[in-house]
């Protein structure tokens, strides 16, 4: 493999009490990959994304970021490293404007020291958020003035993903980005993900919707019972096969961490 690996998971396991949520999972994420992560409920995809987001520490196994072993937790550490996560809901503050949400936790401010003494620069935050959204071709009225509560679900998701892309210069994790959206809104969100992928951003996206997956992802990773059941280029497979891997109708591919050994 000639491609530079952005991030590699090596034999990651994670258990909660007696439950093995992740069992020896290895995954190589190349720069520019747009990976669709699928699997049944409880298959381990959400634990996997939380390991990447720094929300869960693996019980065993290594995380290699750009060639070096790296601890991703707590989430603030993952964020510092350029890994951003857009959660299904729980990502925006409803009464805040899009601009305020953009900078929540990372406000542009005058002064140093405790947060009590740091003066918010609202104008500067508004300008930067506007620019960030313009660069992504996102046109939503009221970025600086409208509480995101007053926006549609699709607009909110666009804002949340744009924020993730703005801060996550290395890796963007999306948890069911189209789950609660209508057809037109889903298309807008998928278009944005496609544009981000085209710009070279690396993305891992959890989804239940295989149709959406095929529209944006170049790779499919199937999880089943805590293991990686399949890891395929989306051009080299089809929906029936993927469904078969999800349900277990098709045997998992070689359980060894195929890609790393092939690469070595």
């Amino acid at each position: 493999m000639a491609q530079a690996m952005l991030l590699s998971l090596r034999r990651i396991s994670r258990s909660f009490g007696g439950i093995q949520a992740l069992d020896n999972v290895s995954l190589d994420i190349a720069k520019g990959d747009v990976i669709g992560l699928v699997g049944d409920n409880g298959a381990g995809k959400s634990t996997l994304i939380k390991v990447l987001a720094g929300a869960h520490d693996p019980t065993s196994g290594d995380v290699i970021l750009e060639g070096r072993p790296q601890k991703l937790s707590p989430p603030a550490e993952a964020q510092r490293l350029g890994i951003e996560t857009v959660y299904q809901d729980l990502s925006l503050i409803g009464t805040f404007t899009a601009a305020e949400n953009f900078f929540l936790g990372r406000e542009i401010a005058i002064g140093r020291g405790p947060a009590l003494l740091r003066w918010i620069r609202r104008k500067s935050m508004g300008d930067t958020a506007m620019r960030g959204l313009e660069e992504l071709n996102i046109d939503i009225p009221g970025i600086r003035s409208k509480p995101v509560d007053r926006m549609s679900g699709g607009q909110r998701q666009l804002v949340a993903i744009a924020r993730g892309a703005f801060w996550g210069h290395k890796l963007l994790l999306l948890d069911e980005p189209t789950a609660a959206l209508g057809v037109r809104e889903s298309r807008e969100v998928l278009d944005l993900i496609k544009r981000l992928g085209a710009q070279g951003l690396t993305i891992v996206m959890v989804t239940h919707n295989l149709d959406h997956l095929w529209q944006v992802c170049n790779r499919v990773v199937v999880m089943r019972r805590g293991r990686k059941a399949a890891d395929l280029a989306s051009s080299a497979t089809n929906m029936e096969d993927v469904v078969a891997y999800i349900t277990g109708a098709k045997e998992p591919m070689t359980p060894r961490p195929a890609t790393t050994e092939a690469g070595a």
Binding site: P75, A76, L92, I93, G105
Partner: peptide
């Protein structure tokens, strides 16, 4: 203000 609306969202945003 953020934690008054949604502590979990705020925490995830790094607050």
């Amino acid at each position: 203000k953020a934690i008054g609306v949604s502590p979990e969202s705020a925490r995830r945003a790094g607050v």
